[in-house]
Structures are given as structure tokens and as C-alpha cells.
Lab assay of single mutants.
Amino acid sequence: MGKSNSKLKPEVVEELTRKTYFTEKEVQQWYKGFIKDCPSGQLDAAGFQKIYKQFFPFGDPTKFATFVFNVFDENKDGRIEFSEFIQALSVTSRGTLDEKLRWAFKLYDLDNDGYITRNEMLDIVDAIYQMVGNTVELPEEENTPEKRVDRIFAMMDKNADGKLTLQEFQEGSKADPSIVQALSLYDGLV
């Protein structure tokens, strides 16, 4: 993909415009910024974590950033290329609610087996709590990752089998306004 070129080839721009919710001009602008920050044309896990640390200076986002990195890194080569970056950004910032929920499901399904187990969710929720640090005051019933996961599973795990399917996750998330709101945070920002 033209590693350190400051412009993408027209056919690449066209393809990314088809695969995302961005215009050709927006794709070019994002590429310019991506190459400025990642001259090699790729972003590794350490660089990704560094970006998260800028956004969450009062907590430790390392663990959460690693989980997000793994979802962005579609081809699992340990690096995020621009096409992976822009497609994930498109879903998280401008995707439909169902697209965002499928993306979030992939984030929580750490072993990619098609289910979110209690332990997988606990890993992610714990990482989120570490990331936000003491900057967020949580209600008593959610002031630990374990309590939050218990509440989520009580609401979403309809067949009580200890794991969530994509359908259970989507339906449960849509029924909880706070989850829908959290997924909409990026709307309109890009």
C-alpha cells in the first residue's frame, strides 16, 4: 500500500471509500495523518498503546488498548495497516448500531470462538476500569469489574449457560440505554 507515500493510489482510495462510511477526501485526510504518525505505514501494539495513554492519562489503558489493537489487526500480523485502521474507525465512528455491536462482540470474544464467556467479559471490564482509573464515580452495584459483569450476565445471558452469543449480546445491549450510549460516543466526531 505504498508504505511511506503521502498519497494513496486512486484505486485504493476508491476501494476504501466503498468499504467504509468515509468520502474519498476523508480517506485521504486520514491517510495523511496516519502516515505522519506512522511513517512506516504500520502501527504496532506499543504505538497503539501510546495513543491510548494520551487519551487516558489518569488510568492505565495498556490492557484495553491491547484488546482493541487485536480487533483492529484483522489479518493478525501484529501490525495495523491503514486499510485495517480506516475500516475499524469507520465501523466504530459511523457504523450502524448492529455493526458497532458486532465489532464490540469481537472485542469481548477474546478467543474468537463465537461466545463471550464470563471470564472474557471480566478481562475486558477489568481493563476498562484500569483505563479510566479513579476518574469515573461508579454506583455501588457496579464499583468492581466483578459486580459489573454479574449485572451484565444477569441481564443478557437469557439461557443461563454462562456465555453470551452474538444475538444475546446484541439484544441485551439494545435493551440497556447506557450500552447504546457508550457505543454512540464516537458518532459525529469524525
Results as ranks from 00 to 15, higher is better:
47 G>I: 14
34 F>V: 04
33 G>T: 03
135 T>K: 05
51 I>Q: 07
72 F>I: 02
139 P>E: 13
107 L>V: 08
23 T>R: 15
121 M>N: 02
43 L>V: 13
70 N>Y: 12
76 K>A: 13
138 L>I: 08
113 D>T: 02
169 F>C: 09
24 E>A: 12
95 G>T: 03
116 I>C: 02
23 T>V: 05
172 G>R: 11
137 E>Y: 03
158 K>P: 04
170 Q>H: 03
129 Y>P: 01
48 F>I: 12
89 L>H: 14
114 G>K: 13
81 E>R: 04
101 L>P: 03
100 K>S: 15
184 S>T: 05
122 L>E: 15
117 T>K: 03
31 Y>P: 10
190 V>A: 08
109 D>G: 03
119 N>L: 01
35 I>D: 09
48 F>P: 08
22 F>S: 14
58 F>M: 14
29 Q>I: 02
116 I>Y: 15
112 N>T: 09
109 D>H: 05
75 N>Y: 13
124 I>F: 01
186 Y>A: 05
45 A>V: 09
183 L>T: 12
33 G>A: 11
11 E>N: 00
61 P>L: 10
136 V>M: 05
95 G>H: 15
84 E>I: 00
116 I>S: 01
149 V>W: 00
144 T>G: 10
132 V>L: 05
9 K>P: 04
84 E>L: 10
36 K>N: 06
188 G>F: 07
20 T>D: 12
55 F>L: 04
15 E>C: 11
137 E>N: 05
67 F>Y: 13
99 E>N: 12
52 Y>Q: 06
156 M>W: 14
160 A>H: 15
61 P>Y: 04
48 F>D: 12
139 P>C: 05
186 Y>G: 03
134 N>I: 09
179 I>F: 11
165 T>A: 10
38 C>K: 07
18 R>G: 14
90 S>V: 14
16 L>I: 11
186 Y>V: 03
85 F>V: 13
49 Q>L: 06
68 V>W: 12
146 E>P: 04
154 A>T: 05
108 Y>S: 05
169 F>S: 05
128 I>V: 05
49 Q>S: 03
28 Q>Y: 13
145 P>V: 00
190 V>T: 07
61 P>H: 08
151 R>C: 03
115 Y>S: 11
147 K>M: 04
83 S>M: 12
84 E>P: 04
77 D>W: 07
126 D>G: 03
183 L>Q: 13
21 Y>D: 02
158 K>Q: 12
158 K>R: 11
38 C>R: 09
84 E>R: 10
10 P>Y: 14
92 T>S: 10
60 D>P: 03
133 G>A: 10
27 V>H: 07
116 I>D: 13
138 L>W: 01
24 E>R: 06
79 R>L: 02
121 M>S: 01
68 V>A: 10
171 E>C: 01
132 V>I: 04
